[in-house]
Nucleic acid binder design. Structure first.
Lengths: 216, 216
DNA sequence: AGATTTTGTGAAGGGAAATTCACATTTAAG
DNA sequence: CTTAAATGTGAATTTCCCTTCACAAAATCT
């Protein structure tokens, strides 16, 4: 079920679009102005926003820019007037995902929405992959300790890590080191010393942020 | 194996203490001045620092204050001169974990160290519990989505969450909600609506910070 | 009151993560 | 060169997280 926001000053279009898309199993909200659209987008997290270019007060482009600021993850389809190719290109440049020229076939819009929703789902997956990896890596206390150790002891070796962590079975440490390497947070040099990567530093900073944040 | 740092300007005491404690299976480093002690503490993460009160340049108290700034997790035992109860009390007030009056029985110091090391292990457990819980809670993408949802929709109800997340089996959502409640990130009001706690807000902010951090 | 929806519990099962063990290879030391 | 220490691999096992299912209690609707 996708959340759609329809923004148009023309009540007839709003109504017709809303009805049609609901029949297509989308969940739709409507807004009659740019300001109300932004308010709704702030609290409701829409997958796709369908935006009329020509509106009094705020133009579609203005609304688009605001939406990109506050809810950049939402996909935006801009509805432009017939023949205004220029407007359409401008909208895409400013971050709209798609555009459609009035008057248009509702079926055409529907497939456009589907494509946008798919795209959104996909880009979310990509983002979440990183976050998932980082968080699940850091959620293990042993790996956190290893990361800290490697941070303070550049090029530290396996057995040194094991002894510092009071772990008898070195293969256990190997397991977590592999894990950290697989996620790209640390690397091993030719002398088999472990050191952090750029990503590792990022993750390490994240850890510090969390620790500071949670302990105040 | 505990890491101990011995700080004393008197070489004889340093040597004797070091030898004695090594025989007791502690790992010991020595420093002859406050400044070198601080440098070592910054890179080595000692469990217990044994600190002489009377030293040229930096007094033990000065060193103590610096240590508390940079490595607050280390426990500090202050060695004070005979009869200077006042110094001892001041040291404790300023954050020393224990004190011992010169001249002292080495065995006595050894048991003091053991106690400190235990205490450190314990306090670390407490800290890490929170961090562990929070991180492992946040490492699950469903729980992250629930947290976001509850953030934007104060007092949202179970089925609403399930439908927003496109999850058919509500018991799955219940599972994660319980999880979030157990870690104290969210609570349920009398009307069975879910809302965030202070801790939840903290965690939520952490998440946002991390997301920004990882995506740049 | 009866039906339906919402909310909740507990047990069973799948599967990934982590630990342990047995053993191989490489490197360093005497 | 021999020995010992350090490093590494793969399989077996355990543990823990998550999902699913069957079902029950509570709240809401008609």
């Amino acid at each position: 079920m996708n959340n759609i926001l329809i923004v148009d000053d023309d009540a007839r279009i709003r109504g017709a679009l809303s009805k049609f898309l609901q029949a297509k199993q989308f969940h739709t909200d409507v807004a009659s102005s740019g300001t109300s659209a932004i308010k709704m987008a702030l609290t409701n997290d829409y997958d796709v926003v369908i935006l009329d270019q020509m509106m009094p007060e705020m133009s579609g482009t203005d609304v688009l820019l605001e939406l990109k600021k506050f809810t950049p993850q939402s996909k935006v389809i801009m509805m432009t007037g017939f023949g205004s190719i220029h407007d359409a290109i401008e909208a895409i440049k400013k971050g709209a995902t798609e555009y459609i020229q009035k008057p248009f076939d509702f079926e055409q819009l529907s497939s456009l929405i589907k494509r946008c929703a798919e795209e959104k789902k996909f880009s979310q997956c990509l983002e979440k992959l990183d976050l998932d990896f980082t968080l699940s890596t850091l959620s293990n206390p042993i790996r956190r300790r290893i990361l800290k150790l490697i941070h303070t002891h550049y090029g530290i070796h396996l057995m040194k890590i094991a002894s510092k962590l009071d772990i008898d079975d070195h293969t256990k440490v190997v397991f977590h080191l592999k894990n950290l390497m697989k996620t790209g947070l640390i690397k091993k040099n030719a002398q088999k010393g472990y050191h952090m990567t750029k990503e590792g530093m990022k993750a390490f900073n994240c850890l510090n942020i969390i620790e500071r944040h949670l302990s105040d």
